[in-house]
Design a protein around this nucleic acid. Sequence first.
RNA 1: CGGAGUGUGGCCUAGUGGCUUAGGGCGCCUGUUUUGGGAACAGGAGAUCGAGAGUUCAAAUCUCUCCACUCCGACCA
Length: 417
Amino acid sequence: MSQLFTKTLREAPKDEVSVNAQLLIRGGFIKKLSAGVYSFLPLGLIVLRKIENIVREEMNNLGGQEILMPVLHPREIWEEAGRWETADYLYKLKDRQGSEFALGATHEEVITDIARKYINSYRDLPLLVYQIQTKFRDELRAKSGLLRGREFSMKDLYSFHEDEEDRKKYYNTVENSYLKILKKCGFKDIIVAEASGGSFSKEYSHEFQIPTIAGEDLIIFCKSCGFAQNKEICDLRQEGVCPNCEKELKEFKTIEVGNIFALGANYSKPMSLSFLDRSGMTKPVIMGCYGMGPSRLMGAAIEVHHDHRGIIWPEEITPFGVVVIQIESKNEAINEKIKKTAEKVYKKLQEKGVAVLYDERENKGAGEKFMEADLIGIPWRVVVSERTVAENKIEIKNRNEKEGALISESKLLKKIL
RNA sequence: CGGAGUGUGGCCUAGUGGCUUAGGGCGCCUGUUUUGGGAACAGGAGAUCGAGAGUUCAAAUCUCUCCACUCCGACCA
């Protein structure tokens, strides 16, 4: 545990109601600075980075090229696309000279500005560019821990195409990678719902929705054909009947963890992003944008995976795969053996590349160590104590199991890998 | 911004005008004892009771203003 400077809390701060906020704060993953603004502490940052890396890997598989755009945006770029006045979620500020800026809430303007420098020809298309970065939004109301912050981690991918047909093709491949990402992050139920195309498109956008009572979105979903729509846009005359197959529609509360969106020429036209096609004609570049929020994903994972004891991290995003707990014995000789065994197991797991947390604290009781291990949600727990040493074994227990099992040290790796 | 609620050591909380030098639990420090589901005992450090103004002989407690946080709504990944 000397790997962590944080401590767990027996009780959650009384104001926090949402499960993800309570457990993340109690476990020492995050610390709230102000509403919707959090620090990520060692445990929390490991999880966030793991999620980001899962996302990054898929984006790279898609052929996306990673970049990093600025947070500070000059007013002019937002005016070019006509959003300076209308985007009321922008944090706006002035520098000492009186120049105006916005904190990046989204990056269509900035990416379009980059693209117009490098895209000249149909030969430069298609192009997929993404970043993972902190976004700032002046939310009217931050809420639910990591689910709606004013400052949050976001992966935004932008695609550039010759025409709508090509854009649609990519749209579907991105949809597939999004599903892959979410599965990897441990989500089993994922609903892709049609949603509003926004102010400039009649076409639907698509939202990736995780059903949970903690969700703030409401969607209608048909179990038999998979039709799903955000309640915001659904046709009330449908009266609970699927427009595709006429079966019953169910309503779910969900968390929107990602969305994909056709931008058409809405940015390329006002910002003069065009290319020469094969026949030498100048045409506006057709764009798509695709968002996914790693920090929200982290919150959503907890809403879906927890019990009365704490978090139950999915294997892929857990901060540590294993916690090794040594329990002191008053007998000096036995204690030595316990320590040696625990240390050996710890090192062996590390050598095998397993992320392992070592609870070597000598002033803490067994019960407390177990409670903490459960709270922070480590999938595997290995215990070395007087009991286990007496039988020349170690104890292994999964976070989902009630009772642990004694196994020999040599079988440990097989069990958890 | 509208509605509801809450602000007391790091966290949970008692106290609703004077018996408060603000009490307890957790956590923290010292020591002793414990050791398989958030241990026990003893001692100790830590609080301008969210901030400011007011009422009063007297304010954590009453009044006003402001601030912060949570929840519902409007805005949104």
